[in-house]
Simulated assay, not measured.
Amino acid sequence: MSARTPDLTRRLTLLFALASGVIVANIYYAQPLLAAIASTFGYSPARVGFLVTLTQLGYACGLLLIVPLGDVLNRRTLIVSLLLLTVLALLAVALSPDFKLFAAASMLLGATSCAAQLQVPFAASLASDDERGRVVGTVMSGLLLGILLARTVSGTIAQLAGWRIVYGVAAFLILLLTLCLLRALPQDRRSDQAWRYRQLLRSLLTLLDRHPTIGLRSLYGALGYACFSIFWTALTFLLNAAPYHYSEAKIGVFGLAGAAGALAAGSAGRMADRGHGHRATGLFSSAILASFVFIYLGAHSLTSLIVGVLLLDVGVQGLHISNQGVIYALAPDARSRITTIYLTCYFFGGAIGSSAASVAYYKAGWSGVCVAGAFFSALLIGSWLAAHRQQCRRLCLQ
């Protein structure tokens, strides 16, 4: 068997990775800009922190209501259509005259950016069985770099030209990407089964019942991403205040510190290919919990804060890839719907984390943020330990 199917060349794999990163970055541009956006519309930074929650909720709605269509519609056409809507949403964000319209446009932007998550199952479907984990890891590396570098790019552009220009530049990039994908993506086969939309959504419950592992891995992903969102939402509040007093550009540079998390994607994908996904889950979950010790010390130590960022991003991204490597092997004909279940839970977890960050910082400052992060980390490890005990019991009974 060849390492890849004829449709999936190295160049196309890298294009999938680039596209995923550029699209998903739309959700994260706002994080280092919260103070500047709050100043524009006359709100406090903590209150505007809920903007991140709205965008993630929009993304979760897109995952739930749109991504399942990838199993029954032509994914090439679906992706291109969503990206054209994304361009319009970005322009609406850039030109919003008041905060209500800005928030509504941001939620729409989140919903249309679910096109990023059509790339992953598309690439997985084109990959051969023995390299699927590595291909998913490559595509996810691009997606994770987009998540992390979005903060650096948006902070730098905002410092030079204002936060609205960030979204104008993003609209241009998405339009350019749409033209590239229109030419490069292979024609996608439709499902042979005739589905009604309501029936398609009900099939999500059938998948969960048939494959409980999807539900368990979705729980892991939600808790891990809650930790991620708690930190990155509140980081702007910390760095904007004493003792740091950082500008948007300096806050955005912290995305570079977290880029090491993308390095974990390839390793996690290879571990999943070798059947070590469960062990990797425990390892990466422990890294997330340990990171909040350094993040707590980071209130007065830049070195500790950077170490905490590195540990957190390696843990969260490694866990994410481990989860996907396991669940994509369960039902090859339902990968878009598996993506829907997993990532809807994932981003609802992120929305909960963003809300928790705003509340915790308002009530108890940076210490409250760290306690919230440690709490979700402990829930994650507890869930993994409970699953580990069940796995050991099954092995003993065999």
Results as ranks from 00 to 15, higher is better:
Met1Ala: 13
Ile327Cys: 08
Ala234Trp: 03
Thr303Val: 14
Ser354Arg: 06
Phe172Ser: 14
Ala89Thr: 12
Ala46Tyr: 00
Phe294Glu: 02
Ala46Gln: 15
Thr303Ala: 14
Gly325Val: 13
Ala3Ile: 14
Glu248Gly: 02
Arg274Val: 09
Leu95Asn: 08
Leu311Cys: 02
Leu51Met: 15
Leu330Lys: 11
Phe348Cys: 13
Ala372Ser: 15
Val52Lys: 04
Ser125Arg: 05
Ala268Phe: 07
Tyr246Gly: 03
Gly58Trp: 06
Gly110Pro: 06
Gly318Leu: 06
Ile174Leu: 10
Leu216Tyr: 07
Ala222Lys: 06
Gln56Asp: 08
Phe284Lys: 07
Gly155Ser: 00
Gly62Thr: 11
Asp129Lys: 13
Val369His: 04
Arg132Cys: 05
Phe99Asp: 08
Gly269Arg: 07
Ala259Gly: 10
Asp209Gln: 14
Val166Thr: 07
Leu200Asn: 05
Thr53Phe: 04
Gly146Gln: 10
Leu160Tyr: 09
Leu73Ser: 12
Gly62Lys: 06
Ala92Lys: 11
Leu144Ile: 15
Thr344Met: 05
Cys392Tyr: 00
Ala329Cys: 06
Thr86Leu: 12
Gly269Ser: 04
His278Tyr: 08
Phe41Trp: 07
Val120Trp: 02
Ala329Glu: 10
Thr303Gly: 07
Ala334Trp: 01
Leu219Glu: 02
Ala268Gln: 06
Leu73Lys: 08
Gln119Pro: 00
Ala184Ile: 09
Val72His: 07
Phe294Gln: 04
Thr138Tyr: 10
Ser113Trp: 01
Phe99Gln: 14
Arg217Trp: 02
Arg189Cys: 05
Leu204Gly: 12
Ser336Ile: 05
Ser377Glu: 02
His211Ile: 10
Tyr346His: 08
Arg10Tyr: 03
Leu149Gln: 08
Ile214Gly: 03
Ser336Phe: 03
Leu379Ile: 11
Arg274Pro: 00
Ser44Met: 13
Ala364Asp: 12
Ser39Arg: 14
Met1Asn: 12
Ile165Val: 15
Asp313Gly: 12
Cys180Arg: 15
Ser336Tyr: 02
Gly221Leu: 09
Ala280Leu: 14
Val139Thr: 13
Thr86Cys: 07
Phe172Gln: 11
Ser125Leu: 04
Leu305Ile: 08
Ser322Phe: 00
Ala241Trp: 00
Gln391Val: 05
His211Val: 09
Tyr244Arg: 12
Ile321His: 01
Leu88Cys: 15
Gly282Cys: 12
Gly325Asn: 11
Asn74Tyr: 04
Val359Ile: 15
Ala372Gln: 12
Ala357Trp: 01
Gln193Val: 15
Gly62Phe: 04
Leu82Asp: 04
Ala331Pro: 04
Leu319Ser: 11
Leu310Arg: 09
Thr206Ser: 10
Val293Ser: 05
Ile157Met: 01
Arg274Asn: 13
Val359Tyr: 11
Leu118Tyr: 01
Cys345Phe: 11
Ala103Met: 13
Ser367His: 14
Asp333Gly: 09
Val307Tyr: 03
Ile37Thr: 04
Arg11Phe: 06
